[in-house]
Simulated scan of single mutants.
Amino acid sequence: MRERLPDRLRTALELPGRAAARLDDYPPALSALAVALAAGVFAVGLVVAAQAGLAMAVTGGSQPVAQTSTVPMDVDASNWQDAPRRTVTLYEQQMALPYGGGSVGEVDVKAMTNDTHVGFRLTYDDPTRDLALDRPGNYSDAAAVMLRTGEQPPITMGASGQPVDIWYWRASWQYANDSAEGAGDMYSYPHPDNETRPGTAAGNPISQATYDDFGQNYYAKGFGSLSDAPTQTVRANGERTEDGWQVVFVRERDTEGQYDATFGTDEPVYLAWAVWNGSADEVNGKKSVSLEFTKLTSDGSQLVAADSGPGDGTPTPTENATTTTGSGDGLLGGDLGSYLVMLVLATGLAWLYSYRKFGGEQ
């Protein structure tokens, strides 16, 4: 068996050459097409393999947590002022279409917990107060926390079999009646809802005009898979500062939602952050995002900063690492169109080159 192995290896290495020689027996256009298809598939395969290898973001450090008697919704409460801070770098979202964002460079995060509740306060610079949705091209300021308890998920809003919990706040929800700022309804004139607001007419919980709770609880299994959680357990409150926004998210530690992050177990909690600046045309996938996870751990009774990484809020050296990938319900689900475009372009370019090569030789 060992003596025959070199012959088999030699045969395998000779196969590409034999295949290339046989192409000479076919018309130039057909030979070029065969080479182009092979090159296109190979190019897309390289991209998929590279993105698969980068889908799992590293953990960029630990989130310090303050133990307190109450977890306040008030952004200016003294409890928040005394809590330790961690600064997280944000980047333009370039993992899936639509690419964009990046107008907010960093966010300061504080975490707080007691026996029953857990909360996060996000502080970031944003020079404009964007609330108005009364005309096309107007977008609201917003912020979100992505969480998963247990195994670290892909940074791409989770994946199939690795769902994430997302807490979302939007300024236009909280300040919908603030007419002084120009907030309003794009379809305020009399018109049937089923024509101008089909989502609202159908009862889609993500398409409501107003919300009693300004924090919404969503689930996702990759880009393009956001869904409303059946039970809304997240509360949020956002207030303007001189330089931007402070947004507080609060939720009970123990909830029964299918994919809700849990805080009362020995498993770690992975956190990521996102911010939208409406005046910078940031909406949906266009956002400023963290490309690393922050980690929380628990001893079953108290949330604590993870052992690895700093506990004083100082970013680690890996804070500036970048990760690019696309994922829907699985690796290709949410961004399949991008791969098809790459395949067509790569095949077309390879065909032109190969046709000229084979055509010139005959």
Rank of each mutant, 00 (worst) to 15 (best):
D7W: 15
R8M: 15
T11E: 15
A12L: 15
G17E: 13
R18L: 15
A21S: 10
P27T: 15
L30K: 14
S31W: 01
A36E: 03
A36Y: 00
A38Q: 11
V44Q: 04
T59N: 12
Q63E: 12
P64M: 09
V71P: 01
V71C: 07
W80Y: 08
R86I: 07
R86G: 03
Q94R: 15
A96T: 09
P98Y: 09
P98A: 06
G105Y: 05
M112Q: 07
D115T: 13
D115V: 11
T116D: 10
H117G: 08
T123Q: 08
D126S: 10
D130K: 04
L131Q: 02
L133K: 03
R135K: 12
N138I: 07
A144G: 03
M146Y: 12
E151H: 13
T156W: 11
G161D: 05
P163K: 08
W167S: 03
A171S: 01
Y175G: 02
A180T: 13
E181H: 12
P190R: 07
E195Q: 15
T196I: 13
P198V: 11
G203M: 10
S207W: 09
A209P: 08
T210N: 12
Y211R: 09
G222D: 04
S225V: 05
L226Y: 13
S227P: 00
S227I: 13
D228M: 14
D228A: 14
A229Q: 10
T233K: 14
V234L: 03
G238I: 01
E239V: 08
E239D: 08
E252F: 10
R253T: 06
Y259C: 02
G264M: 08
D266K: 10
P268T: 08
L271I: 10
K286V: 08
K287W: 07
S290L: 01
L291T: 02
K295E: 04
G300L: 06
S301M: 06
G313H: 04
T314G: 00
T316M: 00
T318F: 06
T322I: 11
G328N: 06
G334C: 02
L336P: 02
S338I: 08
L343Y: 01
L345P: 05
A346Q: 01
A350F: 07
L352C: 14
K357A: 15
G359P: 07
